[in-house]
Design a protein around this nucleic acid. Structure first.
Length: 469
RNA sequence: GCUGGCGUAGCUCAGUCGGUUAGAGCGCCUGAUUGUGGAUCAGGAGGUCGCAGGUUCGAUUCCCGCCGCCAGUACCA
């Protein structure tokens, strides 16, 4: 015997989760297609060097490695952006800008944590070959439209730019190769607070468990400048940018970089995406090394514990690895599983247990072909119907299935009804509402709650009415 | 990866200061009801006490290792 089990960080998605998830994915796809993006799929497995070129050694440890029968080193993709950059490099005849969406599983050999799995699904939207800030504007707007379509409740999309962060390095007099380490700390601002960020930038500290956190050893003058930058806050995007212009008045190239953000902001403004839901937030950095320009991040205000559920940015150099030429690109990615978990937690998505709308019970073995006929009559009328296919069972057991799976209607026909040319339609919700008021089981059975007897010929019509179709 | 805690039925947990047959609640199955979900009642199934080794006459209990889970921390392209 083999113990049925899954390797850590992997999980099954049972029907109730899948039905909610498919609904969510359909909604997202609808928005992406409204924007005129087209689908792409790529293999789960890629050559290891194709995947890992953009990553350091640390990152490579996070790749699940695979070998093919020919003994070549392969790996499971860890995101959808790297395969996309391979695709656009491999098909030079493609029509650019290439605007694609992709919803697929990715794998990371991380330590699993609540809400974090080793296999998870991303839903990406990217424009490759799109240099203009219109492309970035579209991505930000699509993020808003998607979150609206999903009815997630209040949310905030925040954006900044990698280039602005590089300006901070200049402003504070920090070498650019020290950037990633600084950005990684700034990215934690929300989580650990300003005081600890300052300590990490300077001397480091010991956390509650006594573990040492290394510091970067920046000077107090440098930290003060970073703090001044992080302190920029405003009620609107315009106000934030105004303060930023003042702070960087003497930093070379700063005004041009701020112009880029300003243009995106004013496009958004004229389209009705106001500062209440799309903010310029200079503290977002994104851990990713490959971003080169604007970066985006969206959070749900009612479920902040889920972190960013939708994020992305501009990555103009990723394709260069394959072609030697830069192709400008920008996009964003939804953490499907994380967003779904948030929607379920917030009760903003239904989790049906089945697709069935009607259960046709089988009471009399001699009428089986009649039950099948009824079932197909309903199916051909577009009503999602299942028929009792298990071992012969008492009617109560069959109805119990409808109760447990939330199948709203049950069709009952015994030999008596068959002879008279009628069927009984039972509306399950009625009994559920009466259950608390009924004492004895005799009374419960005799109640025949929610049942009506109708002519067999009226079955489709009646169910259509009940279902509101 | 590091530090600490915890692994007993499908779930939540009790218990064994090392000793005959390891329990409860919930859930599940069957019946009371060969044509009706809920409630109630009666009965039933389900455990190599995480895995392997050691100590012992005897280990689910004590010791060691491994695996898994949880919390914190690091990392997260």
């Amino acid at each position: 015997m083999v113990e049925p089990r899954l390797s850590r960080g992997l999980r099954d998605l049972l029907p109730d989760t899948m039905l909610a998830r498919q609904r969510m994915i359909d909604t997202i796809r609808g928005v992406y297609e409204l924007y005129g993006f087209s689908p792409l799929d790529t293999p789960a497995i890629e050559y290891l060097d194709v995947l890992s070129g953009s990553a350091g050694e640390d990152a490579q440890q996070q790749i699940f490695q695979v070998t093919n029968p020919e003994g070549e080193a392969l790996g499971l993709r860890f995101d959808l952006t790297v395969p996309l950059s391979r695709v656009v490099s491999q098909y030079p005849d493609m029509v650019f800008p290439f605007r694609r969406y992709q919803v697929s599983s990715v794998w990371r050999a991380d330590k699993p944590e609540p809400g974090r799995y080793r296999q998870f699904t991303q839903f990406d939207l990217d424009s490759v070959g799109a240099e203009s800030d219109v492309a970035d504007t579209e991505i930000l707007a699509a993020m808003c439209d998607t979150l609206d379509a999903l009815k997630v409740g209040p949310y905030i999309v925040r954006f900044s730019s990698r280039r602005i962060l590089n300006l901070v390095l200049d402003y504070a007099g920090i070498a650019h190769d020290g950037g990633p380490a600084v950005f990684r700390i700034l990215d934690k601002l929300d989580k650990i607070g300003l005081d600890k960020v300052k300590l990490e930038l300077t001397t480091g500290y010991r956390d509650e468990s006594g573990a040492p956190i290394a510091g970067l050893g920046l000077s107090s003058d440098q930290v003060e400048k970073i703090e001044r930058f992080l302190g920029i806050k405003g009620a609107s995007r315009g106000e934030v940018l105004k303060q930023l212009r003042a702070l960087f008045a003497n930093v070379e190239n700063a005004q041009e970089e701020i112009d880029v953000i300003e243009r995106i902001s004013s496009h958004l403004e004229s389209l009705g995406y106001g500062s209440d839901r799309v903010a310029v937030d200079l503290t977002i950095a994104r851990g990713l090394a490959y971003y080169t320009g604007p970066v985006f991040e969206a959070n749900l205000l009612d479920a902040p514990q889920f972190g960013s559920v939708f994020a992305g940015g501009r990555y103009d150099d990723l394709v260069k690895r394959f072609t030697g030429r830069s192709i400008p690109a920008t996009g964003a990615s939804i953490g499907v599983d994380r967003l779904l978990a948030a929607l379920i937690e917030l009760g903003r998505i239904e989790q049906p247990k089945t697709t069935s709308q009607v259960l046709v019970t089988a009471m009399d073995g001699g009428l089986m072909s009649e039950y099948l006929a009824i079932t197909y009559e309903l199916r051909r009328a577009g009503i999602r119907t299942e028929i009792h296919v298990g071992a012969p069972k008492r009617l109560g057991k069959q109805i119990q299935r409808a109760d447990r799976l939330d199948i709203p209607y049950v069709v009952i026909m015994g030999s008596d009804e068959a002879q008279r040319g009628v069927v009984t339609v039972k509306e399950m919700i009625v009994g559920r509402e009466k259950a608390a008021d009924v004492g004895s089981h005799e009374e419960w059975k005799a109640g025949r709650f929610g049942q009506q007897e109708i002519a067999r010929t009226d079955l489709v019509k009646t169910l259509r009415q009940l279902l509101g179709q």
